[in-house]
Design a protein around this nucleic acid. Structure first.
Lengths: 194, 194
DNA sequence: TTCCAAGTGGTACTCAGTACCGTACGGGAT
DNA sequence: ATCCCGTACGGTACTGAGTACCACTTGGAA
């Protein structure tokens, strides 16, 4: 890795760190981009070169997650017809690698608290989910699932993830186990009459 | 209805109409609040008295939808244990009444096109879904569903709705039938192995 | 060392959203 | 019909997000 790239990575981390700290201290809308730039020792302009807006800093891990699912679709499938199994396996593969925020015991609760209190962040979090759903759909299709089913399964996977996040609270360790439990619950209760 | 309320309703409609027209003509971010206010023959300040922000005009029907679900929970439940049935029935009750935008053949496609192209609007649309999910959850619990299951079922209901919207395209007439088809598909395919 | 490309940060601008205030008007009182 | 009060209106002014532009610096290759 060249010196240039190293510097950039450092700047990126400084900004994320500064933003999370300030958001946690004062709340999302009591922090201006200028504040973040100052604490991160960068120009205001530079902030916007690294992150599209004030919110994006919090979701810096989105791209990573999406790529992980994409990579996961190359992994050998255990039971190609079992959608729930494939979904859980993909999730497990991705989750094991950990992403920046989700893997960080400090950052994760801060973000969850912020999302819980700020409507715009709920919106934004939803977009992230949607992008993950898209990646998931592609991954499932890559594993030979029926296209229409893949779309549906991906959306349901996200629905489970939402429930898991809501149930797990602020502990990132609990998310994956809860996710697994919820998926199994879906499978067993979806058709009580059918 | 008093004269005052009549005027307010008229102003509200003027703003919605102006906004949809301008958004359709120029695209969401090429339209300023001032533009909308001018075409609607109101002051800029007044716009913000009726709608919290530029996006909210597009989702003016959110509150109505939520209230419809709330009202629907009072209706007699056909098969209290059949979650899928309850979900479909609630949806049918709500959909039959029609909301402002969803029921309007003109407005619906415009909104769908805008949402498809503008990321922030996707976010916002997601929030609407989430609020509907919340209302749905409450409604399901009101019908005697297990609380944890109600949360899950509501989320899955929304997942189906997303799929239905995506599949139905721009024709509001197709949404409900597609929704029904998708829900049935979930029931029949969720557990191929179980 | 020299030169080019890429990153930086400052200035200046537009526009969203909020606060405040004087004015106008609907609606209930006499 | 008139008066009065509360509410809605619209204008002014402000903060802060996000963008465009530009001059300056610096890493890296020749």
């Amino acid at each position: 890795m060249t010196l240039r790239e190293l510097k950039q990575q450092r700047v990126r981390e400084q900004i994320v760190e500064a933003a999370f700290a300030l958001y946690a201290e004062r709340g999302f809308d009591k922090v201006s981009v200028t504040d973040i730039a100052e604490r991160a020792q960068v120009g205001r302009t530079t902030f916007f070169r690294y992150f599209g807006d004030k919110q994006e800093v919090l979701f810096a891990d989105e791209q990573t997650l999406v790529e992980m699912f994409a990579a996961g679709s190359d992994a050998p499938a255990p039971a190609p017809r079992d959608l729930a199994g494939a979904l859980l396996q993909l999730w497990g593969l991705t989750y094991a690698k950990r992403d920046i925020v989700l893997g960080d015991k400090k950052l994760f609760p801060v973000r969850q608290r912020l999302i819980a209190t700020v409507p715009e962040l709920q919106d934004r979090s939803g977009r992230k989910m949607q992008r993950i759903a898209d990646a998931l759909e592609v991954a499932l299709r890559g594993r030979g699932a029926d296209p229409e089913l893949a779309l549906l399964a991906a959306q349901i996977g996200i629905a489970c993830f939402r429930v898991a996040l809501q149930t797990a609270g602020e502990d990132p360790e609990k998310v994956m186990p809860t996710m697994e439990r919820v998926v199994r619950q879906v499978i067993s209760t979806a058709s009580p009459s059918a």
